[in-house]
Computed example of a mutant assay.
Amino acid sequence: MSRTSFQGEIPEEQIDVCPVTATQNVIAGKWKIIILWHLRETRRFGELQRLVPGVSKGILTAQLRELEKDQMVHRKVYQEVPPKVEYSLTDAGRTFMPILESMGEWGKKYDLVKKSRDEIE
């Protein structure tokens, strides 16, 4: 049995051999990690677009849809004019926050080490 993703089929044996594959399948995409980080609070689409400079409207929409399909993000549509849509983390998305926080801490340490090495060279 294979798992379908926007990247194609991932053989089940690959997930068995390397469990990180399942995680990578969910967060793969240039903007998904950043989107998840900003969804620690409920956000509207325009707000997300401002918080993630450089992402196009189409790509942001696609990444949000993929995260929604993978049950990481909840999309709530309010029946009003003009339409109002809010995005928030699901329970699964919230369980990913400690991982993102760890990645942030690692990134800060990596940056410090890299800057130190650059100064030496």
Rank of each mutant, 00 (worst) to 15 (best):
M1D: 11
M1N: 08
M1E: 14
S2G: 08
R3L: 15
T4L: 15
T4N: 08
F6R: 09
F6Y: 10
Q7Y: 14
E9C: 11
E9H: 12
E9D: 07
I10R: 03
I10E: 00
E13P: 00
Q14S: 12
D16K: 12
V17S: 03
P19V: 05
P19M: 03
P19S: 13
N25E: 03
N25K: 08
V26A: 06
I27Y: 07
I27M: 07
G29V: 05
K30S: 05
K30C: 04
K30G: 01
K30A: 12
W31P: 03
I34P: 00
W37N: 07
W37E: 01
H38Y: 09
H38V: 02
L39R: 04
L39F: 10
R40V: 10
E41V: 03
T42K: 13
R43N: 04
R43K: 12
R43W: 00
R44G: 15
F45G: 01
G46R: 09
G46K: 02
G46M: 05
E47C: 11
E47A: 07
L48Y: 07
V52K: 04
P53I: 03
P53C: 11
S56D: 04
S56K: 10
G58I: 06
G58H: 10
G58W: 04
G58M: 05
I59Q: 15
I59A: 05
A62G: 10
A62Q: 15
Q63L: 00
L64W: 02
R65W: 00
R65M: 08
R65Q: 12
E66Y: 11
E66K: 14
E66V: 14
L67C: 06
E68I: 01
E68S: 11
Q71N: 01
M72E: 01
V73G: 06
V73Y: 00
V73K: 06
V73M: 02
H74I: 12
H74D: 11
K76M: 12
K76T: 10
V77S: 08
V77P: 02
V77N: 03
Q79L: 14
Q79Y: 06
V81Q: 13
P82C: 03
P82G: 03
P83I: 15
K84T: 14
E86A: 10
L89H: 07
L89R: 00
T90F: 05
T90P: 04
D91I: 14
A92Y: 08
R94H: 12
I99D: 00
I99K: 02
L100W: 02
M103W: 10
M103D: 00
E105P: 01
E105N: 06
G107D: 10
K108D: 08
K109N: 07
Y110R: 11
D111N: 13
L112M: 09
L112I: 10
L112V: 10
R117P: 00
R117G: 04
D118Y: 08
E119W: 02
E119C: 13
